[in-house]
Nucleic acid binder design. Structure first.
Length: 198
DNA sequence: GTTAAGATCTGCT
DNA sequence: GCAGATCTTAACG
């Protein structure tokens, strides 16, 4: 059976639609390997950023040095630095040159809990390890050195979750933290999950 | 060269 | 619930 670059079955996935990808990424594993060890979690919260009609998208005003990775081929990482302290991690979607991506906002920690805790700092509660884009990048040691990295291989990759229910309770809401396009419902969460950013 | 804003988090009230 | 930290990026002069 044929799979695309995220390992999704072709039947499950209609072309390169970014909104669809944001939904389909829920429930899948995000894995990160470093010399310190492996950390992994289940993606529970995503947001789609579109090239048209979406001023909140970094690519909406054309290609710049920062957002260049967004215009690359689907399945690579777009990582950027924000607010002087934090990184945000996206999966590039859509055909090459289009400039769309899915922001990974939160994961449910599964593997390497102690390492995540160490990176996040002291006595961090389990549901505070990776419940937000900045926290997630801290726990997974993601920075701009991974910008443009292909997410099909080490040291940062997406993986199927055979244990996930076939039908997830997915809810659509407005995106968090954007000042424009607040009316667009482009945030996807696993309903009722304890590890959401809010 | 200068400036304003930003896909956030933490700590304090 | 709210303000402050903190600094890169991009737009403008």
């Amino acid at each position: 059976m044929k799979q695309d670059m995220w390992g999704l079955l072709a039947d499950d996935y209609c072309g390169f639609d970014t909104v669809e990808a944001a939904r389909k990424l829920l429930g899948r594993y995000l894995c990160r390997e470093t010399e310190e060890g492996l950390v992994a979690g289940v993606i529970v919260e995503t947001e789609a950023y579109l090239s048209e009609g979406d001023p909140a998208c970094h690519a909406s005003r054309g290609k710049t040095r920062r957002n260049a990775a967004m215009f690359g081929p689907p399945g690579i990482a777009y990582v950027y630095f924000i607010y002087g302290n934090y990184y945000c991690f996206n999966v590039v979607t859509g055909p090459e040159g289009r400039g769309e991506a899915v922001l990974i906002r939160a994961v449910e920690p599964v593997e390497g809990l102690a390492l995540m805790q160490k990176r996040r700092g002291k006595e961090c509660a389990l549901n505070n390890l990776a419940s937000g884009p900045g926290k997630l990048c801290q726990a997974f040691a993601i920075d701009t050195s991974l910008n443009g990295h292909e997410l099909s291989r080490e040291p940062l990759y997406l993986q199927d979750n055979p244990g996930a229910p076939l039908i997830l309770p997915v809810q659509r809401t407005p995106r968090i933290g954007v000042s424009s396009a607040k009316n667009l419902c482009l945030r996807f969460i696993i309903e009722g999950n304890r590890f959401l950013s809010r």
